[in-house]
Amino acid sequence: MTLREIVETVNATVLCGEENLDREVESGFASDLMSDVLTLLTDNILLITGLSNNQAIRTAEMSDIQQILFVRNKVPTKTMLDLARSQQISVLVTSYSMFKSSGLLFAKGLKPVY
């Protein structure tokens, strides 16, 4: 599904990377454990997380993840957004929980990694 469809599905706000909304995203991975994220070798992933700090953006950067969805209105700081912009990472935020976001996106066809 496209990033635009993801935004619509979880009623998200796009905080940066609006220019990438037509990008195809194949699978999703929901975790607050960054070491867990770092085990992934799959591409075209949406990271769904409630962990709002610099390391969430850094982990995405190291894992070549180009889009992050922060759940439960965990709005990232300006430093995090600047870092995301510098790495061309799109940042979305939703009021939905990690469970609800994952469920809705899975139902719409976003694939699990494992």
Partner: peptide, 16 residues
């Protein structure tokens, strides 16, 4: 742990 690390995956991940 608050940073999202400390799950005991670091060294095994490096090995992988």
């Amino acid at each position: 742990r608050e940073l999202g690390f400390g799950a005991g995956m670091g060294l095994p991940n490096i090995k992988k």
